[in-house]
Design a protein around this nucleic acid. Sequence first.
DNA 1: CGTACGTTTGATCTTTCTCAATAATGGTGG
DNA 2: CCACCATTATTGAGAAAGATCAAACGTACG
Lengths: 247, 247
Amino acid sequence: MTSPEYAFASLLRQLERHSVLSAEDRQSLLALPYRLRRLDLGSYLVREGDEPTHCSVLISGYAFRQKLTGAGARQILAVCLPGDAVDLQNIFLDVSDHSVQLLTRCDVADVPREALQELALTRPAIGTAIIAFTLVEASILREWVVNVGRRDARARVAHILCEFAVRLEARELATGEGFELPMTQEQLADATGLTPVHVNRVLMGLARDGLIERHRRSVAIPDWEALRRVAGFSELYLHLDQVAAAA
Amino acid sequence: MTSPEYAFASLLRQLERHSVLSAEDRQSLLALPYRLRRLDLGSYLVREGDEPTHCSVLISGYAFRQKLTGAGARQILAVCLPGDAVDLQNIFLDVSDHSVQLLTRCDVADVPREALQELALTRPAIGTAIIAFTLVEASILREWVVNVGRRDARARVAHILCEFAVRLEARELATGEGFELPMTQEQLADATGLTPVHVNRVLMGLARDGLIERHRRSVAIPDWEALRRVAGFSELYLHLDQVAAAA
DNA sequence: CGTACGTTTGATCTTTCTCAATAATGGTGG
DNA sequence: CCACCATTATTGAGAAAGATCAAACGTACG
């Protein structure tokens, strides 16, 4: 389950969502050179200001993108799931504009920048897939702006829970029953633009109203429609249904 | 100044920021087929849910990306400047996840989806440039999340003003003296996640403290360093300095 | 088994929102 | 060119969502 081959396969599955890859395309992706690392919770995969030399693929574990304001506040920008290529971003820009930190202990595969770049440019189908992949990330980011900018605390927290549930299910990391939330309430606060105290109160409120059930970090959603309504959630922006046209 | 050739030249200049284009690359970009349209303020260039058939390039005028929450609130996600290719986004995804609306009367050039897509895939340098371009947009979006999520009202408004000033200057649409802000205070509010009333109060406050000078929609920044400090602004995320390595 | 971290709760305070009214401004038709 | 109308900007008073401060409680891990 956590072998590198499996992780590349997961990356592959995501790329194929938006582009038709030939057997050769697939092969050359799986043949990409890489170096394996195991990193502890809290390690940085990328730091703002870095000049990237490689792109890391998350084999197992979770990570998040973050930036700090001048005043020292932290904003979490995105959560990376197992199988995500963490910094496709950095392969085509020369300096990293945000940091990526691990949410859990992780296995990562580092792919040299040039190898991936060359693949993207010489194989049009892979190029398309990579562009589409970054565009989906951008779409998620746009919804994140909406969440933080124009929803109240309850809807914000509900929305981020809906997003996790759907993204995790799409990768078969969650069942309809529920999922492990890989974040502390403080991290949830930095993702939603709230304070940890208020996140706690909102979570308690959602639980009290029967919209979620919690035991430790595990979250279950007994009435999906109800939570979706509270969150104003519509999964269109995840671009999950877009299957590449048959070859 | 507002001929289509000029606008494509402006697009070209942006693309060349991140990739080295050959004479041929340039030529094929400028030879792209297009259809010209003049549209009134408030028109939609793209609507959420649309299946895109073309990519519009802004020849003159301003536009903005937006999404609506279920509750009907609007969040502005980005402002598009003259010379921007508005929906490179949509060329590689099959359904548009947000809307683009005009901030002013605009001249736009519609480039057929297939033409641009083919160019991106057959000319690696152009492919690189397009990926880099969308990555820079994503970086701006990330800073937008930080702005709305983790800065107080004063810093938020100051930050968006700093961003405009720098982006406009980079395209020679503003001088050190100041610039025309193409938005109403209500739109500014939807961009910063505040209410129009509060945006007004913050603007008044910034002016009272000598951080900005306003007459109608024109904004001057008498003390750049002071405003930058209030905003916590650092232009790294705009990736402006990144010049393509010499060929 | 104790220590550090995360969660929960209460009390109070502040920022920002809401509602409402007034004043400018710009555009339009006569 | 002027008067009118619609939109945008400005101001005040009161309300509310969420922040801050502080303390207690759990739980996991070394």
